[in-house]
Amino acid sequence: MMSTSLRINGRNWEVSALDERTLLIGPADKVDILSGIHETTKLLEQCDISEILDIIPAYQSIALVFDHVVIDVKDEIRSLQKQLSTEFSQISPPKKHEVLVCYELGLDWKEVESHTGLNREEIIKKHSETEYSIATMGFTPGFVYLEGMLASISTPRRQNPRTKIPAGSVGIGGSQTGFYGLESPGGWQIIGRTPNTYFRVGDYPPTPFSVGDKLRFTPISKQEFESLEQENRLS
């Protein structure tokens, strides 16, 4: 596989072809990888390069999807480098989000309490008082992976995943927390649910979140959840 390098904002990125229309870039140095990916993703988005259809960040790399077949990786990178400034003076600050959660709708409290040795109130307090960073998004549309969860509430994924998790479910999977944008199968330990819809196919972009954004959970009652859910259905 042919590879070369690209320099963005003073940092070198190794580049390789992922498929005929996609290049994969990863940091040449392995220092502070995730924050570097978040920063570079925002910079690339701000550059608004017309031939790049999509920019997809992950934990170790960023995929650049082009509107044409990439014939020669090195030629493509030379062209891309000309369109990029090697130094950027300003990066948009991360957005901050509040996500309402009804912890009464958790499905796996018994498992989480048993593993952590904490009671429900203690877990809710730790989970909701932490400010998280959005690490990446996938494995299904709208699924949000968050970093920054306290180790004291880390809980392994379920041994037997569910075939159906309601949209908006908030869960813990190992050392991470996150939530489901759509109804889907899943193996995370569900501790609550948000009444709001954070993934809409007809919207552009379909989600209000970006990698690197900050997020906090705010507890609400089941009555508040049902009221907000009904409002959302009517809107």
Rank of each mutant, 00 (worst) to 15 (best):
I8Y: 00
G10I: 01
W13H: 04
W13M: 04
A17E: 13
L18A: 15
E20K: 14
E20W: 02
T22R: 12
T22L: 06
G26P: 00
P27A: 14
A28E: 15
D29C: 08
D29Y: 07
V31P: 00
D32P: 01
I33L: 12
G36A: 08
E39G: 01
E39S: 14
T40Y: 02
L44Y: 07
C47D: 13
C47I: 02
S50Y: 07
D54H: 12
I55P: 06
A58N: 09
A63C: 14
V65T: 12
H68F: 11
V69Q: 14
D72G: 05
D75F: 00
D75P: 00
I77N: 09
R78T: 08
R78N: 15
L80H: 03
K82N: 02
S89V: 10
I91S: 09
P94I: 08
K96Y: 14
C102Q: 08
L107A: 13
K110Q: 15
S114V: 05
G117S: 12
G117R: 10
E121H: 10
I123Y: 03
I124T: 08
H127W: 05
E131V: 15
Y132C: 12
A135K: 10
A135Y: 12
M137P: 02
G142K: 06
F143R: 01
L146V: 10
M149L: 11
S152F: 00
S152I: 12
S154H: 15
S154R: 09
T155K: 01
R158T: 00
Q159K: 15
Q159L: 15
N160C: 02
P161N: 03
R162E: 01
T163Y: 00
I165V: 15
I165M: 05
G168E: 07
G168C: 05
S169T: 05
V170T: 01
Q176R: 04
S184K: 03
P185L: 02
G187P: 05
W188V: 06
G192T: 04
T197R: 14
Y198P: 06
Y198D: 10
F199N: 03
F199K: 04
P206H: 06
S210F: 09
V211K: 03
K214Q: 13
F217A: 09
S221M: 09
K222N: 12
E226D: 15
E226T: 10
L228G: 01
S235Q: 14
